[in-house]
Simulated scan of single mutants.
Amino acid sequence: MSKADYPYPEDEFDAISPDAPTGVHRAPRSAWSRWWPFVVVLVVVPVLAYGAVAYLSRTGDLPVVGSPTQGQDAPVAPDDGAVDEGAGEEDPALAEGEPTPEAEPTAPAAEPVLTTPVAVLNGARVGGLAGRVADELEAAGFTAVSPDNATGTPPATSVVYMAGEDLRATAELVATTVGVTTVEVNPAQAGPGITVLLVTDPDA
Rank of each mutant, 00 (worst) to 15 (best):
D73K: 06
A87R: 11
S33F: 05
S146E: 14
E10I: 11
G23D: 05
H25V: 10
A150L: 13
T157D: 15
I16T: 06
G127W: 02
E104K: 14
G193A: 15
D84H: 04
L94I: 09
P63C: 01
L62P: 01
T153G: 13
A190M: 01
V43E: 08
M1D: 13
P99I: 07
I16D: 04
G164Y: 05
V178F: 06
G88N: 11
V183K: 03
V174Y: 02
T22D: 12
E138F: 08
P78W: 00
N149G: 03
E184M: 07
T106S: 13
G97V: 10
L62Q: 05
P112L: 14
R168Q: 13
S57M: 13
R34Q: 12
P101Q: 07
W35I: 09
G66Q: 04
P46Y: 03
A163C: 01
I16P: 00
A31N: 14
D19Q: 08
V76H: 07
D203Y: 07
A171E: 00
S57I: 11
V196I: 12
G23M: 10
P99Y: 09
D91F: 08
T115G: 15
P46I: 03
T143H: 13
A74M: 11
R125P: 00
D166V: 06
A140Q: 14
N149C: 02
V183I: 03
Q72R: 11
E85M: 10
R58K: 04
R132P: 00
